[in-house]
């Protein structure tokens, strides 16, 4: 017995360690590939951003001096200040070296560093859009689970119908209607802005929340249907699976079968959606922020585009793209944690 066990014992251990080592290498390669791919995308974005906004029609100098008595010399002066008189290659080089130092230059219209402007506007957008992603995901997923579990029932049909109708409504239209009814009409909410003047300290929290209600409702209403539909169809698929019959045959209560077996599996496809939408958080909601005069990045982007304020829109474009790329990367890294089948 002991004799036969001795020579065989080290063999499985050896095999185990060899497998571990190749597993680590495979995992490192997976993460390396994902990270490398993200960096390549980011570089492509940096290149595109410079040329993209030079294609859109409009001369920044002429737009900014529009309606003012300026001489040709003054316009040339502005052009020199902005660096627009230099050859394109030279402009591109100074743009590229600036971006790599995280310096996006000074905004034409605000005459201040783009990074400062972004810094000021970032948190209102993250607050508004981030909250809307959290609420719409929670609401949509919850309604999706309920709908799938009682599919075909009256509440399911009503919920799905309402969600799909709201999804097809343009956000700016819904925002305007809400302003007309609840702000300028009933007077329950402010029509625009993020806070009232003269409110200080802790008082600001309820004040900002009060300003946030209508834009938040608009953003949630047009988006939550995505989560509902994905969760509902994904859970319906899972409910027909054999392992659900196994779980029921074990004698588990329906609610446990749902919570422990069906929902975790059905959540997997929604993870990607949530991360994609989180990536769009900093992009804000250009239309909704503009309509509600919410001092966020979306509104800043809108005002930058109408000039075009090249350093500003370039900086924002890179920021928006970087956020999407980063969230996709996070989703790629997180997904294997949730689903053992795709573990590298």
């Amino acid at each position: 017995m002991a004799d036969s066990a001795l020579p065989t014992a080290p063999v499985p251990q050896l095999a185990q360690s060899v497998r571990d080592r190749s597993g680590v290498r495979r995992r490192l390669r997976y993460y390396g590939e994902k990270l490398g791919g993200s960096l390549v995308s980011l570089f492509a974005v940096i290149l595109t951003s410079f040329f993209l906004f030079r294609i859109i029609p409009g001369d920044p100098v002429r737009t900014m001096t529009h309606g003012r008595p300026v001489t040709i010399e003054q316009q040339e002066q502005l052009r020199r200040e902005f660096g627009l008189d230099k050859p394109l290659a030279e402009q591109f080089w100074s743009y590229l070296t600036g971006v790599l130092r995280l310096d996006f230059g000074d905004s034409f219209q605000f005459n201040r560093p783009v990074t400062d402007l972004i810094g000021e506007r970032l948190w209102p957008t993250v607050l508004l859009v981030g909250t809307s992603v959290v609420i719409s995901a929670a609401l949509g997923l919850w309604l999706g689970v309920r709908g799938a579990w009682n599919h075909g029932s009256l509440s399911d049909r009503v919920n799905t119908g309402v969600a799909l109708t709201l999804w097809s409504v343009p956000s700016f239209w819904l925002g305007l209607i809400l302003i007309v009814i609840f702000a300028s009409g009933a007077g329950w909410f402010p029509t625009s802005g993020m806070e009232s003047t003269g409110v200080e300290g802790w008082e600001r929290i309820p004040d900002v929340a009060h300003h946030m209600v209508l834009p938040l409702v608009t953003l949630v209403a047009v988006v939550y249907a995505q989560y509902l539909m994905i969760m509902r169809s994904s859970l319906l698929d899972e409910m027909g699976s054999d392992y659900i019959v196994t779980a029921r045959a074990k004698g588990l209560r329906d609610i446990i079968v749902r919570r422990r077996h069906a929902v975790p599996n059905a959540l997997l496809p929604t993870v990607t959606l949530i991360f994609v939408n989180l990536g769009f958080v900093v992009f804000g909601a250009v239309l909704v922020e503009t309509i509600f005069s919410w001092p966020g990045l979306g509104q800043l982007f809108y005002s930058g585009l109408s000039v075009p304020d090249l350093p500003l829109v370039q900086g924002l474009f890179i920021l928006f793209s970087a956020a999407v790329i980063l969230m996709n990367l996070l989703a790629d890294l997180l997904y294997p944690v949730l689903d053992p089948r795709v573990r590298p």
Binding site: S241, D242, Y243, V245, T246, A247, A249, K250, H261, P264, N265, L268, L338, D339, P340, R341
Partner: peptide
């Protein structure tokens, strides 16, 4: 108890 066709999908893939 029941032995299903476990070779296919009768086990929960993420547990």
């Amino acid at each position: 108890s029941i032995v299903f066709q476990g070779a296919m999908h009768s086990l929960n893939a993420v547990q």
